[in-house]
Design a protein around this nucleic acid. Structure first.
Lengths: 155, 155
DNA sequence: CCAGATTATCAGGTAGCCTGAGGAAGTTAC
DNA sequence: GTAACTTCCTCAGGCTACCTGATAATCTGG
């Protein structure tokens, strides 16, 4: 009913495609896990800890590009649900190190797998070559924008 | 700082690219207009009315894929700011027709132009062929997902 | 010890969505 | 013509995922 009236701007295509892909990943997590007390926003925190356990809140917030307070909320939530725990940093008594629990590690592994599965799905759907080209185009768009924002973001 | 540690999932690329493109469109609108009392979410309502003036709230919500109540809030906001107005439908006294004001029409025109400019920018950045392929891939992803959701969505 | 930065937390706010309830007006069946 | 259902809109309240501001505890440097 919607898409037959006018060509959608690329903008809208990106948004819709993102929603579709995200939903698919999220469904994969739930299917492999039945943990339906987690929401997409939690994924960011979980992923980071899987890559590097024992991070500080500040560090996690910086990596995710959100405020310390926002990340604090996510971590509160995840802690209450048993996915991770705060432990005092022995070397800095201001800080707390955030660690995955066993339950959290299991979930993180499943999430990673679900993401990988969806990547495979996309590669099959589009074919390897188009899939890689899609990724390349997206990266180009992102890079072009970053260049506009901060012309001397030396990396 | 983030993107140098591991290949981002396509998921994340889509999200970031969407944000980049949206921000660019939005910046274009503001540059041509200096109406900074509008936020991205309002764009959806405005675009629709530019294509077809005098729509009903219900219709607009359906097209945007959000609830009537949510669209109602956007319309409230836009009406308060003078971009559009509700007029009673003479043929159906339950309904109200939503019309762009002069100010609203001006804004909608600028928004449309900004969107078109960004499409041009993308086409230049990627080249016509890749640009078209990108759009095609995104549409394929979206279509694939829709098929999963509602296998017999007869149109 | 004091100044200033850093780490985390508490309190409160906003945008953009949502569900639920309900009134007014149109439509259909009898 | 009236009861029953549907459609269109609005009001009230709630949720997620963010935000800013303020504050307490701790570390670092002079």
């Amino acid at each position: 009913m919607l898409d037959s009236c006018s060509p959608l701007p690329t903008n809208a295509l990106l948004r819709t495609a993102y929603n579709a892909v995200s939903a698919r990943i999220f469904a994969g997590v739930k299917a492999g896990n039945a943990f339906d007390d987690l929401r997409p926003a939690h994924g960011n925190a979980m992923e980071q800890l899987e890559l590097e356990d024992g991070l500080r809140l500040t560090e996690m917030a910086a990596r995710a590009g959100i405020t310390v307070q926002s990340m604090g909320e996510l971590v509160d939530d995840l802690e209450a649900k048993g996915y991770l725990e705060r432990r005092p940093d022995p070397k800095d008594r201001r800080a707390k190190r955030i660690h995955l629990t066993k339950r959290g590690r299991k979930n993180a592994r499943i999430a990673k797998q679900a993401t990988a599965d969806v990547e495979d799905h996309l590669a099959e759907l589009l074919g390897q070559q188009r899939y890689q080209q899609l990724r390349h185009c997206l990266q180009q768009i992102i890079a072009s924008d970053a260049r506009d924002d901060e012309p001397d973001a030396a990396g």
